[in-house]
Amino acid sequence: MPVAADSGGRWALGFWGELGDRIVGAPSILAADFANLAEDVRRAQRGGAELVHFDAMDNQFVPNLTVGPVVAASLVEAIDLPVDAHLMVDSPDNLIPPFIEAGVASISVQPEAVTHLHRTLTMIRAGGCEAGVALNPTTPPEFIEWALPYLDYVLVMTVNPGFGGQSFIPEMADKVRRLKEMTDLPIQVDGGITAETAPIMVGAGAQVLVAGSAVYKGDAEVEMRKIIDAARGAG
C-alpha cells in the first residue's frame, strides 16, 4: 500500500507506483458470475491477470446499479490480487472512506462528477490508496491537467461507462497518445478490450488493460491469457 510520496509527488509504494514498464491484464468483475465472484477472479488470475477492476455504479452518474464496498471487502479477503475500484457515481467522496476500509489498493473517480478534485484525490491518498481519474470518451485530457501531480494513474474509458459488452471506440487511442505527451503516469484502458483491440491501445501507450466480456465469454483463464499475450506482443 502507498505510504509515502517521492520527490516528484508520486507514491513510493503500491501497484501503480511499482508498475514500471510492464503490461498488465485486469479482469472486470462487471462481466463475472457474482454467485462465484472470487473463483471467477482466480480463473483470470491463472491466465496471468495481476489486478482486479471493481466497477461501482449508482444508477445516477451511469444508468446501471452494481456493487459497493461490502462486496469489495469480501472480495479483497477472498483473493490475493490487488483490487482497483472505479467509482462511476455522483458524490464519490461519500464512498471513498468505506472503500478504503474495504482494503482496495486504488480508487479512481470520474472528474466529471467531482466538484473539488484535489480534495477528493487527497482523501484517497491520505487513506493509503493510490488515486486515479477515469475520463469519459468525450472528456478531453486537458480537463485533468492541473490534477496530474496528485494522481498515480489515469483510466481512459474506451466505451461509454455503465454497461459491459459495448463496442470499442477507436478514437480513444488518440486520447491515450495525447495523455502520454502530457504525463508519464500509467494509463489504464477499459471498454471493448479484446485480443484484437489490446494491441492498439498498447501501441498508443496504455499499460493496464481491463477486459470483462472478452474474458468471461468463455474460459476466463484462456481468454485472459489471449489478451495479455496479444498486448505484450504489441509492446
Score class of each variant (00 low, 15 high):
2 P>V: 14
186 P>M: 02
128 G>T: 11
114 V>D: 02
33 D>K: 10
1 M>G: 14
87 L>G: 15
190 D>E: 13
58 D>W: 07
202 V>I: 12
179 L>S: 05
36 N>Y: 14
158 T>A: 07
128 G>L: 14
120 T>Q: 04
151 L>N: 04
46 R>N: 00
153 Y>I: 00
106 S>P: 09
10 R>P: 13
206 A>K: 14
136 N>R: 08
106 S>H: 06
210 V>H: 09
12 A>K: 13
17 G>E: 01
103 G>A: 12
219 D>K: 11
24 V>H: 06
70 V>L: 14
75 L>G: 04
68 G>F: 09
11 W>F: 11
126 A>D: 15
3 V>F: 15
25 G>T: 15
173 A>R: 00
43 R>N: 09
102 A>S: 15
32 A>K: 07
219 D>P: 08
99 F>P: 07
83 V>Y: 05
129 C>T: 03
103 G>F: 11
4 A>I: 15
160 N>K: 10
199 P>C: 11
102 A>W: 08
90 D>L: 15
78 A>V: 07
93 D>S: 13
147 A>M: 08
159 V>F: 04
33 D>T: 10
157 M>C: 08
130 E>W: 02
12 A>Q: 14
74 S>H: 11
156 V>S: 00
186 P>D: 05
165 G>S: 06
82 P>N: 06
140 P>M: 08
39 E>M: 12
206 A>Y: 11
167 S>Y: 06
20 G>R: 11
141 P>H: 04
61 F>H: 03
107 I>Y: 15
58 D>T: 12
67 V>E: 01
99 F>H: 11
81 L>G: 10
181 E>L: 10
113 A>K: 09
26 A>P: 05
96 I>H: 06
30 L>T: 04
82 P>C: 09
136 N>K: 12
54 F>N: 06
223 E>A: 03
130 E>D: 01
69 P>I: 02
44 A>C: 12
12 A>M: 11
145 E>I: 04
181 E>C: 03
235 G>P: 10
128 G>A: 10
54 F>W: 11
